[in-house]
Design a protein around this nucleic acid. Structure first.
Lengths: 346, 346
DNA sequence: TGCGGTTATGGGAACGATTGCATAAATAAT
DNA sequence: ATTATTTATGCAATCGTTCCCATAACCGCA
């Protein structure tokens, strides 16, 4: 197979000991200038590359951070990953991405693998199936640094970065109310997720503000977060079958939004004429949709960046960190056609 | 920091040597049944997990494969990655994903890092900036297994998996011609990429078949593959400014398709009434677009799977492989509104 | 009783890099 | 001239596993 150059090869070639070579390469003060130069030049010449595996074993750290998301094929997460990478690379860390596909088992396997593979820290957004946090608490207690983003674990004390889901949901719902909707349904994710509760609270608060009663029939959870199209379709069908059919749907996630639009299209329901739509999504093609979609957009890139900065701070901290912070970033409501069926009332 | 259980701990606790423990854990014939049972049970009890870093160092393999794509936020690649993971996990490999963002430098860094990090093999789709293959040939010559998919390197002899780009482009172009377009432009990727040439050939062949002359003014390359919106906008604007403005555009990639639609929308150009559109994309929301997009879809998941199978075959082969294969998979033309402005002629 | 053969185990050297602790040589201080 | 100090280098242990090579205990057979 293929045999890279080691520190030994350099030592042998130059008649030095491996320790001297190692120290010369890491530019230590004990080594004479000439030796350093000799070693450096030779290493350069034969293309020496330190073996990170051996370094990891010795130093007990890998300069890599693990990322757990449900899917990279999701605009929010792919943007967050870009944010993560932008910081990680500039700080000398490599990024290992894993997907749970919203499966709890996959999450456990991925987290465990990355931990044993020696990542220095973990950036986690929980899967919608997860309500048991044992795989994380054990690692957390052992001192593995972790930062949650978006879908956070309330019971684990560490840094967290989220969008202002309450506010985002509130704004979107308020907008639907202001454009004349009253029978507003909420299509949302698994109740396990932190974002689900936060968005539901914002939704309810907006209803309350305008004295619109909350109707439990209008609340539909999709436990797999829209990974299974049938699930979305059933939920939407149930909404459509109600005697008091909703005149608007506020949707809590990316996949649910597209799934819902598909179903409505299938039924020939006109958006926004029959039903208005507004939803959380970071899609950058929402404007090209038919109709262009009113969206709540999260600062995903920024969230990824901040989470990574926090994680690296934890990793590099000399003392165990005991003060933890939850950063909340503003969302942005982008009003387009899908919500504009009614006249604006103020 | 955090101190996992090692084979030594087990050995000490059980009064055995590390060798015996190691052998018991790997179920070797030399170890007595009782000892094995003892070790296995104790290991289970205290939650022993072998250290993959130490194993990698010793075995000189990591049971992980590296993936190089331009962007995970691209439907084609995220689907391909899902295919890759599906095979890799079932065969006991882990997957490390890196993004080039269409940058050559990023590609070099990522490839080098993964190689030195000890991946057992590489799955590569080249960046649009890449036309120097040195970073890959050196590794290839050293015997690092690699398989290309989608954007392949013609000069490196190894397995490759691609869609039938020629045929896909031919079909889409033919469809545009059959629905009455004659002045068909082609908006495409960097000329560096294999897919660019293949699709262009298919495009030209379809024109030739129907005696439509090829007009070089109608061919626009975007060297950054649509990563830079301006680039797309300029290209589209140039097409629109032509005295003999095209009545259709055949678009060679995902990002270019959305970028082009944006630009057309901005100019208030009606699709398909003014200009018909058909394009390569694996978006699963193409149907929700306004208008619903006629697309050439690639079997991305399958391509990822096959590439991974081939790579694992290379990795696990006892003898150096010298016979290489290029697998070509069929694309699928999905006709929707964006191409239907004219009556069908046969 | 002694020898070849099996069976089960331990010792210790790898893998590649780092690092505390010698040690040798050169220089400075007395 | 002798001791102390600096400077430059090497030895060997370490990280967690694996695996080659002993070795010890036991068996059967002559």
């Amino acid at each position: 197979m293929y045999q890279p150059i080691t520190i030994k090869d350099i030592a042998k070639a130059l008649g030095l000991s491996t320790s001297t070579v190692s120290r010369a390469l890491t530019d230590r003060y004990e080594i004479s200038v000439e030796t350093k130069k000799l070693v450096l030049e030779y290493a350069e010449k034969i293309g020496y590359q330190p073996n990170p595996i051996a370094q990891s074993l010795k130093e007990r750290r890998s300069h890599s951070i693990g990322v757990v998301v449900c899917e990279v094929a999701n605009n929010y997460f792919s943007q967050a990953i870009n944010g993560i990478e932008s910081i990680a690379y500039s700080r000398g860390y490599h990024v290992i991405i894993t997907q749970t596909h919203e499966s709890f088992d996959r999450e456990v396997v991925n987290v465990q693998h990355m931990a044993s593979r020696g990542v220095d820290g973990l950036l986690i957004s929980l899967s919608s199936e997860t309500n048991d946090l044992n795989h994380l608490t054990t690692l957390h207690e052992k001192g593995l640094p972790m930062v949650f983003f978006d879908r956070v674990a309330n019971d684990i004390e560490t840094h967290k970065v989220i969008a202002d889901n309450y506010r985002g949901a509130f704004d979107a719902t308020e907008h639907l109310i202001k454009t004349g909707s009253r029978r507003i349904a909420h299509l949302t994710n698994s109740p396990n997720l932190s974002i689900t509760a936060e968005r539901l609270d914002g939704f309810k608060a907006a209803l309350a503000k305008y004295d619109v009663p909350f109707n439990p029939d209008y609340l539909k959870h999709c436990d797999h977060g829209g990974m299974i199209q049938d699930e979305v379709e059933i939920a939407v069908n149930q909404l459509l079958a109600l005697s008091d059919r909703p005149d608007a749907i506020f949707i809590a996630s990316d996949r649910l939004s597209t799934g819902c639009l598909y179903t409505l299209k299938k039924h020939g329901i006109k958006v926004p004429a029959d039903i208005a739509i507004a939803g959380f999504t970071n899609s950058d093609v929402a404007e090209l949709f038919n109709p262009a979609l009113t969206t709540v957009r999260q600062p995903a890139f920024k969230i990824g960046q901040i989470a990574t900065e926090m994680l690296i701070q934890l990793i590099e901290s000399k003392y165990p960190v005991t003060e933890f912070e939850t950063r909340k970033l503003d969302t942005e409501l982008i009003i387009r056609e899908s919500s504009e069926h009614h006249v604006t009332i103020t």
